[in-house]
Simulated scan of single mutants.
Amino acid sequence: MVKNIVTFGEVMLRLSTQTGVRLNQTDQFTAHYGGAEANVAVSLAHFGYSVYFVSKVPDNLLGNAVERHLKSHGVQTNYLLKGGERLGTYYLEAGAGERSAQVTYDRKYSSFSQLEAVEIDIEEILQTASLFHVTGITLALSPSLRELVFLILKKAKEMGVKTSFDFNYRAKLWSQQEFSEAIKPLLPYIDICFCGELDAVHLLGLNQADGFLPQKERLKYYYQKLKETYPNIQYVCSTFRTVISSTSNRLKGNLFVEDELYQSKVHTLEPIVDRVGGGDAFAAGILWGILEELPPEQIITFATAASALKHTVYGDCNVFSSKEVFQFANTEPGKIVR
C-alpha cells in the first residue's frame, strides 16, 4: 500500500551570515528555504514516500520560490495555499568556536500565521494519509493555528491516521507556560512524540527525577511518567547532544517504546557544516522507521544516522536517500565509499 504523509507548518526564508561575521557587520547573506515540518517532508520524500505539505505562502516571487523548492525535493504542493502579505524570514548569525549561532526572527503577520481553518478541507487532506506530522513551532504562531492543529489531530484519530508531534519549543516565540497550556489538550491525540528531558520538566511539569540517576535512567523515568498519563502515546523520542563547540558536537538518539528505552551509538559531528534541520532529520528518520515497521534498534540507529548526515550539508533540508543513510550507519566514519 502506498503510504502518504501529510505535514503542516510554515516555510521561511533563511538568511545566513558567513562564519566569523556578525549579523550587524554583514553586507551579504546566503539564502535557504526551510521550516521544521517542511524539512521533515523533504526528508521523507527523499526516503521514497509520497509527502504532502500543507501551508500558505504569499502569491509573489518568494511564494513561487518556496513552491519550486518543495517540488525540487519531490514534495507534493497540492495543498500549498497562496495569499496573505508576506513570507516569514529569519536571520542566522553563524556561530564560531564557543560562540553559539543566533537566530533573529522576522515572521510576524506572515501568510501562514494568518491561515484560518475555513481555508482548508481537513478531511480531504487526510483521506489518503498514513501519518500526519506537526510541531510546537506552528502552535506558537497564532491562536487560530493552535485551534486548527487541534482540529486536524482530532480528525486524524477519527480517521485512523497516525499522528506525530515534535515539541520544538522556541523561547523567542512564546513562554514555557503558554506552550504548556497549548500542548496539553493535544497530547491525547498523539501517537508519536518528540520530547526531551528538559521538555518533560519545564513544559509538561513532571516531577524531577533523582539527580543522581544516570542520564539514561532519568530519561526513562520521564517517558514512563508521560506514558502513564497519556497511554495513547506509542513512541517517545529525543536526542542527547553534547556541545564541544559550534562545529563539534556529540549526538546520541533515544527511542522509548513498549516500556523500553533504545539508544543509538554516539555520533561525533565534526566539523559541523550546518546544524539547522538536524532535529527534523532525526524526526523524519524515526517516522520512516516506524512506517517501515523496523525493530526499535534499527529505527533509532537509522534516525540518528540521518541526523548526523544532515550536519554535513548546507541548508535546512536533508537530501539523502534511505539507502544512503543505511550505508552511512554501517560504514566506518570518513571511509571512502567506492
Rank of each mutant, 00 (worst) to 15 (best):
K3G: 03
V6M: 04
V11H: 00
M12S: 02
L13W: 01
Q18I: 02
D27N: 09
F29C: 01
F29S: 02
A31H: 06
A31Q: 07
Y33A: 07
V40P: 07
V40Q: 05
A45E: 14
H46Y: 14
S55N: 13
K56T: 10
R68K: 10
H69F: 13
L70C: 09
K71N: 13
K71Y: 07
G74A: 10
T77R: 02
L80W: 06
G83I: 10
E85M: 02
S100H: 03
Q102G: 00
K108G: 04
K108T: 11
S110Y: 00
S113D: 06
Q114F: 05
E116H: 07
E116A: 09
V118R: 08
V118Y: 08
E119Q: 13
E119R: 06
I120M: 04
I122A: 01
E124M: 03
I125T: 02
L126F: 07
Q127S: 14
T128N: 12
F132R: 00
H133F: 08
G136Q: 00
A140L: 00
L141A: 04
S142W: 05
P143I: 09
S144R: 04
R146D: 03
R146V: 07
E147R: 09
E147M: 08
L148W: 05
I152P: 05
G160Y: 04
K162C: 03
F165M: 01
Y169A: 01
Y169P: 02
K172I: 09
K172P: 01
L173V: 12
Q176H: 12
Q176L: 08
Q177Y: 14
E178H: 10
F179I: 06
S180Y: 12
A182G: 14
I183A: 14
L186K: 01
P188E: 05
H202W: 12
L203V: 15
L204G: 11
G205Y: 14
N207E: 15
A209K: 04
F212I: 10
K216R: 15
K220L: 10
Q224E: 13
K227F: 12
P231D: 11
N232I: 14
V236E: 05
S238L: 02
T239H: 06
T247M: 00
S248V: 09
L251E: 07
K252V: 14
G253D: 03
G253M: 05
N254K: 07
V257A: 11
V257Q: 09
D259A: 13
D259E: 15
E260F: 12
Y262W: 13
S264E: 09
H267V: 12
V273A: 07
D274A: 02
R275F: 07
V276N: 01
G279M: 07
F282S: 02
F282I: 06
A283N: 15
A284M: 11
A284C: 14
G289F: 06
I290W: 01
T301C: 15
F302E: 11
F302R: 04
T304H: 09
A306M: 11
A306V: 13
L309M: 15
H311K: 01
Y314D: 09
D316G: 04
C317N: 15
S322F: 14
F326V: 13
F326R: 11
A329T: 13
T331C: 15
